[in-house]
Amino acid sequence: MSELMETVLIERIRALIPDTSVEQKRMFGGTCFMVNGNMLVCVSRRGLMARVGKEQEAEALARPHAAQCRPTGRPMPGFIRIEPEGIETDDDLRHWVEMARAYVCALPPKAPKPKSMKSGKANR
């Protein structure tokens, strides 16, 4: 996926989830959309990663162009990688975003991580 296609996909997702509880953050070599500190979807040059949860994983893997996410060679249960061909239409993209939202919006909010002290500064 080209940089332009990646940018367009980010805009398409933003249009599907315009609410203020969604935060954009650079992670996993791409742009992630977060809800209450939990990753919803992540756009990268490889396509889309969606967090659908273990309960929906078999259903998600049955869809065309979907595979289990294995960024380090080991599977990440509940995370699905969708090739660019699987998100070409707005209906396909909406399906993945809604499947991820059904799971992620039911999760408890993550507590923000405390900001660490810069090295060299001692606690006094």
Rank of each mutant, 00 (worst) to 15 (best):
R45S: 12
V52H: 07
P71G: 04
V41G: 07
K54S: 12
V52S: 07
A58W: 00
N123V: 13
P71T: 06
M27T: 13
A102T: 12
N38P: 01
C32I: 07
E88I: 09
K25Y: 02
E83S: 11
P64A: 13
K118Q: 10
E23N: 09
P77H: 08
D92C: 04
V41C: 09
V52T: 12
M1V: 09
I10F: 01
T72R: 14
T7F: 01
S116K: 14
R94Q: 13
R70F: 00
V22L: 07
I17S: 07
R26L: 12
E85R: 13
S21F: 01
L9C: 06
D90C: 01
M117I: 12
G120T: 09
G29Y: 06
S119D: 11
I80V: 15
A100Q: 04
Q68P: 08
A106P: 03
M27F: 00
R14F: 01
E88H: 06
K113T: 09
A102V: 03
G37A: 08
K118R: 15
V97K: 04
M39W: 04
R45F: 00
E6L: 10
M99S: 13
A60K: 06
C69H: 13
L9H: 05
C42V: 10
S119A: 12
H65N: 12
K110S: 06
E59C: 04
E57V: 05
R51C: 09
C32Q: 03
A67L: 03
I80P: 02
M27D: 04
L4H: 11
E55S: 11
R26T: 10
R14Y: 01
R14A: 15
V43A: 12
I13N: 03
M1Y: 02
H95R: 11
M49I: 12
